[in-house]
Amino acid sequence: MNAFWIILTGTLVATSSGLLGAFLLLRKMSMLGDAISHAVLPGIVIAYLVAGSREPLPMLLGAAGFGVLATVLIEMLYRKARLQSDAAIGVTFTGLFALGIILISAFAGQVDLDLDCVLFGEIAYVPIDVWITPSGLNLGPRAVWILGGLLVLLLLLLGLGYKGLVITTFQAEYAAALGVSVSFWHYLLMSAVSVTTVVSFEVVGAMLVVAFMVVPPATAFLLTNKLQHMLALTVLLGLGTALGGYCLAAWLDASIAGAMSVVAGAFFLLALLLAPRTGYRHQLWQR
């Protein structure tokens, strides 16, 4: 049963992160998920200090606040200070992450946050933290409910906002010419990325969120040239990654989050080398 819950959790994270990651990839913003997931650390620590415990809601608010702060800082360094965009991302997320570690060290007595845990998560502990109703009914792991709720919201957003996201991603200039607000869709996507990163991050750690946000969409991108297929494949790959990663981790007795990243990378490598028409093998063949 534990295995089921862990794989389900992994799949839920993979689906939410992957669907958003596909749009980030097409917008050439793949590193942004990485940056946001690191930059929220001080928000989590501050929330912990204020609330005095690991209550999910304050943590979520703190982290979301710093997620938004990070995007605003990056935007400011890029626009106001005219720093090139990759440097703006690098300066912002490392600075905020360093601040987070310092806060943890400074309040070591009061903060029961382990850096390892922040980075690599505790997906193995997901089944332990169950949601029990006042009448004593066991509803299963809390994380699954939270992540499931998030996924429903995201699917709603993608379903309703599909056209807006696609047109502003494909050609912002044309969207603007039609009178579509490009910055509205940009910030909507960024907020969704922040919230998803933060919610998933609490459960599975920053590293796995980043891996799921980037690698399965990139694999799917190599395998198809239809956006709907790419999104569907991303979800399937996420499921396969969660399943394969769990098995690998169990076999080696190693980190589940790490193993899932490795499996995601393995799928990517296969696609890179063997994809029909675009794979490396095909390129060699053509030569």
């Binding site: 050439k28 980037v214 690698v215 899932m260 990378g265």
Partner: peptide
């Protein structure tokens, strides 16, 4: 940029697997 992100998370994941192993 996507290439950077892919390599980063895959290699690092492998590192974590080896480290925990």
């Amino acid at each position: 940029d996507t290439a950077i992100a892919i390599v980063l998370s895959t290699f690092f994941g492998l590192g974590i697997v080896l480290l925990t192993y």
